[in-house]
Amino acid sequence: MSRRQGVVLYGPPASGKDTVTRSLADLDSRYRLFARLKVGSGKTAGYRMGTAEQLRQLEDAGDVVYANSRYSSTYVIDRPGLDGAFAAGVPVVHLGQIDGVRALVDGYPADWTLVLLWCPRAVTADRSEGRGDADTAARLEAWEATRADLEAHPDMIWDLTVETVTTKPDQSACLIDRLLVQRAGAATA
């Protein structure tokens, strides 16, 4: 029996994580955004909104794989959520912290394909403003934090790196899908 496969899309804000995830889902309906549990306010699309009490219960049960705070909210990758996501297909997890990538890979057994999506800071600014983000300045701070995170972890190995300014979302999705198919074939060989 082959291991469960999942995808991690790591990158700064507006690097294309949502767009590439939609292209993956268009390519194959098994690919589904992993909806992190979000405790806080603001954007709700793509999240499972939760309460501080739910977060406390997950922590007490040891079911928090990774949590981080940004934009005045807490974002949680939880074991029950991942269990459900794998039961439904191939989860695509969005992360912007290498500590989160490592916590996921080390804390939840699966065949994780790690993809670095990148774009220049100016592109993040343009995309953020273009989609109407009210917090573009905070997203640019997050872009800086992501760059510093990469520089602080030069040992991080990515299965695929995609420059989203020069690679279209459907091309990115095809590259990721091909990589998963190859990995699945190697696991069964």
Rank of each mutant, 00 (worst) to 15 (best):
L116H: 15
S72K: 14
L58E: 05
V76W: 06
L104Y: 14
D111S: 07
I77W: 11
S73T: 06
V93K: 13
G62K: 11
K38I: 04
R70E: 06
S41Q: 09
A61K: 13
D60F: 12
Y108R: 00
V115K: 04
G96D: 06
D111H: 08
G107E: 00
R131V: 03
P91K: 01
V92E: 01
G107N: 03
L95R: 04
R102Q: 02
D111C: 02
V76D: 02
D99K: 15
V39S: 07
V64L: 06
D106I: 06
P91T: 00
L82V: 02
D106P: 00
A122E: 14
Y75V: 01
G50R: 09
A52F: 15
Y47N: 03
G42W: 10
A67E: 13
R131M: 03
D60A: 15
V105G: 03
P109M: 02
Y66W: 14
D99V: 15
S128K: 10
D126S: 11
R131Q: 02
P120V: 04
G62P: 10
G40N: 08
D60Q: 12
H94M: 01
D99M: 15
K43L: 13
D111A: 07
G46D: 07
T124H: 10
R121T: 01
P120A: 05
K38R: 13
G130Q: 00
C119Q: 11
Y75H: 11
V76G: 02
L116F: 15
V123R: 09
S69H: 13
A67S: 15
A110G: 02
T51R: 02
D63A: 10
E59I: 08
R102E: 00
D99A: 15
A122Y: 11
A122K: 12
M49V: 13
A67Y: 14
V101Q: 08
G130D: 00
D126T: 12
P109W: 07
H94V: 01
R131I: 04
P80Q: 00
L95T: 06
A103S: 08
G50Q: 05
G40P: 11
V92F: 04
D83K: 02
A85H: 08
K43R: 15
D63T: 10
N68T: 13
I77V: 15
S72H: 15
E129A: 13
A61G: 06
Y66C: 02
S73C: 05
D133G: 01
T51G: 02
T44K: 15
H94S: 10
V76A: 03
S72I: 05
G130R: 10
P120T: 06
Y47C: 04
V76M: 01
Y75S: 05
L117R: 01
L114G: 01
I98A: 05
G81D: 06
T113W: 09
G40C: 09
A88S: 07
A125I: 02
D126C: 06
G132E: 03
Y47L: 00
L104T: 10
S41F: 08
Y71N: 01
P109F: 09
P120Q: 07
P80V: 01
P80A: 02
G62D: 02
V123A: 11
Y108T: 01
R70I: 09
L58K: 12
L117P: 07
V39Y: 12
R121F: 05
